[in-house]
Computed example of a mutant assay.
Amino acid sequence: MESITKNRQSAAALRAMVARAYGPDEVCDGEDWAGELGNGCFNVVYRIRLRSGTQAVLKIAPPPDVEVLTYERGAMATELAALRLVREHTKVPVPEVEFADRSQEVCDAAYFFMSYVDGDDLHTLRDTLTDAEKEAYDERLGAITRELNSIPGPAFGPLTGPGTRTWRPAFLRMVDELLRDGERRGIALPCGYDLIRGLVAAHADALDEVTEPRFVEWDLWSGNCMVRDGRVVAIVDHERAFYGDPLMEFGFAGCESSAFGDSTAFLRGYGHPPLTEPERIRRRLYNLHLALVLCIETTYRAYSDDGHYDWACGHLRETVALLGG
């Protein structure tokens, strides 16, 4: 999807970045050595061929003059931290960071190079899979998510800090930041801002059940799962990770909304029993947060198609109703 946050660079700038990362001898001449990978909606991502024939992936942060959502500020630093944590503490396959530069000397934003992963994203392939194959992948995503959630955190909140000792204030801040982002740009929501704040406050006691901060990938859906020959070969796009409640993972969203599919196979792979009543309340709160993100980001990214916004608003109405609004 097209977004104004995609910070496309000239061929000369890309060559300068390659030279800084790998040395001038690896800079290619001619054509077809760099091509944009178009699946992402936030950062621009390029597939780069080096002179040696090796391929790499270049990811560039948004332009400095483009306003992003509050939680998206410093997203590249978050992704670099997440990649390091996943590599150090799990066996979940992720790309290797080969070079990172935040100096803004050859580009107007931070960027990093990572290893190229030969595979297809699972979302693109889903329509070609049998039901049994889809379930097997969803089970595998459940197991991968549980492994990611095994990483302990020092506090609740951003990977790069600062954090809070308890989960309730951390989550309430996440929701409040989104609502302030929406109000600042005058974004219309199908439910009033004050109504949403009231609903979250009324159900906030359920958050106190969460006492241990854990690594939460949050954006682990099929589009960020790379597969090849029936295997998961990499999980990509980690810029939304934080320390929080594992129940906030995307794979659990279908437990309280059919809009995100069926979570049965995911739960089986994760090894999670059916949700308790407090867990269902928390998951509804997390679906509310997810719906707010999906609604509000459409304005910040200047999507040309209203379909994404309309779908997200429908999900927001559904979740508000489940919470008694």
Rank of each mutant, 00 (worst) to 15 (best):
R185Q: 14
A188M: 11
S150R: 13
F156V: 01
A170T: 12
D219M: 10
L148N: 00
T211Y: 01
E147S: 02
D181A: 12
A201L: 11
G161H: 13
G142C: 11
G163I: 09
T164F: 10
L199Q: 13
W218P: 00
T164D: 05
G142A: 08
V210N: 00
T164E: 08
L172Q: 14
D181P: 05
A143I: 05
A206C: 01
A202K: 13
L195D: 15
P213G: 07
I151F: 01
C191A: 15
G163W: 12
L178S: 06
A204G: 14
D194R: 05
G161R: 06
I196H: 03
L141G: 06
P154S: 07
G163P: 09
L178H: 10
R168W: 04
R168L: 05
D205Q: 04
L141N: 09
G186P: 09
T166F: 04
G163D: 10
D194A: 12
L172N: 05
A155E: 09
G163R: 04
G163C: 12
E183Q: 14
D194C: 04
T145G: 09
F156K: 03
G142H: 06
T145I: 01
A206W: 05
L195W: 12
V210Y: 00
E177M: 14
S150Q: 11
A188T: 13
V200Q: 07
A143V: 03
P190N: 10
L178A: 13
H203Y: 09
L195H: 13
G192L: 08
A204R: 13
I196E: 04
L179Y: 06
I196G: 03
P162H: 04
R146L: 06
